[in-house]
Design a protein around this nucleic acid. Structure first.
Lengths: 192, 192
DNA sequence: CCTTGTAATTGACCGTGGTCATTAATTGCT
DNA sequence: AGCAATTAATGACCACGGTCAATTACAAGG
């Protein structure tokens, strides 16, 4: 006896999303409160959680949509001919991803990876880890070729890395693209 | 009229940390509640926040300490001679970092980077992004050599990437080390 | 040993995300 | 239209991190 989804349901959901978008446009993502969303949408709090498992799911939706818009703008472009072009094309997307610390955190949480920040104990351990690793690499035999998929994953890894470092107090003097370029040069064009 | 730090202060802090460690050992990191910590330490809730800016700071401390222990075990070892050894040596640390999803999130937050997960809207955009990038890379002129520091940063980026993917429902069938090896091969030994 | 200034502690209180038993609206069926 | 079954909406309630004005413990000077 499965019933079709009610029109009312879609309307409510649309009102919630619209309200959320309005509030985000006005005050940014961090400041978004579920209570404000339901108030603006004119529904009860419980209703929100009947439509979204939690607040993060709404954020996922909103931010995901925005990322999609950027990808739409990128997808049709001709393939970049070098790293500089590559980075340039990617920048608008990366700038959105780093428009707010909170946004980046949400993206991390809903994606899956990370690197070096403030200067708490964990950050310190990362610095140490970097030193240890660097010492190893200084004396090992290393370096040749791979698949596009693997390369693409690598680009994501380095982009994430660059963005993460961008939020680190000690490093955010360097602009994001300047941070990313050497990574991508080394990854995409080793030995040049 | 600056006064020396009181012995009482150190004791209280030590009791808080000890209580927290005990609770973590018993129930893991996610389940840790500030109220439980103060109860076990025998102090009021406010006291906790006189010693730590927030709960995350405590987590930072606990997890950072654990990471340090792993680095201690690693630092004195002879430099690994190939990627396999490299990965093997790194694994205990990475396994700790991924022992709980929550732990990995805390590390991400206190470090700074990320990649591909569950399969919400954002994850979808990451897949798309990967496709777009892959298509580009398929036809561009790429590849050669760099500094140890940059290499170390790359290792961190790929490790994070691998860990992040490890939490992704679609990918966690592959063991972490198997995921990491191709990354590091490609990054450390391009063209081989 | 009191006094006085500072540091440490307390716990009632708040904000905000999330739950759930109850109530209201819809739909399908006859 | 009337009835039952299902789905949507409600809002009082809870959990838990975090705050802060008030209180207590401490240390130094007289």
């Amino acid at each position: 006896m499965k019933q079709a989804v009610q029109k009312r349901t879609l309307e409510t959901r649309a009102r919630l999303v619209a309200a959320a978008k309005g509030l985000v446009a006005a005050q940014g993502y961090v400041a978004l409160r579920v209570e404000d969303v339901v108030a603006k949408a004119g529904v009860a709090k419980g209703t929100f959680f009947a439509h979204f498992p939690d607040k993060d799911a709404l954020m996922d939706l909103l931010i995901g949509a925005e990322i999609d818009r950027h990808l739409d703008a990128i997808a049709d472009l001709p393939a970049p001919r070098d790293v500089d072009e590559f980075v340039t094309v990617l920048m608008p997307l990366l700038r959105f991803m780093t428009c707010e610390r909170y946004v980046f955190d949400v993206i991390l949480r809903h994606s899956g990876a990370a690197l070096a920040e403030e200067i708490g104990p964990i950050a310190t351990t990362f610095v140490r880890q970097a030193e240890v690793v660097a010492a190893w690499l200084d004396q090992g035999p290393f370096r040749r070729d791979v698949t596009p998929d693997l390369l693409a994953e690598g680009v994501q890894a380095f982009a994430t890395q660059a963005m993460a470092l961008h939020f680190c107090a000690l490093h955010n003097a360097v602009p994001l693209d300047q941070r990313l370029r050497p990574y991508l040069s080394a990854w995409l064009q080793p030995g040049i």
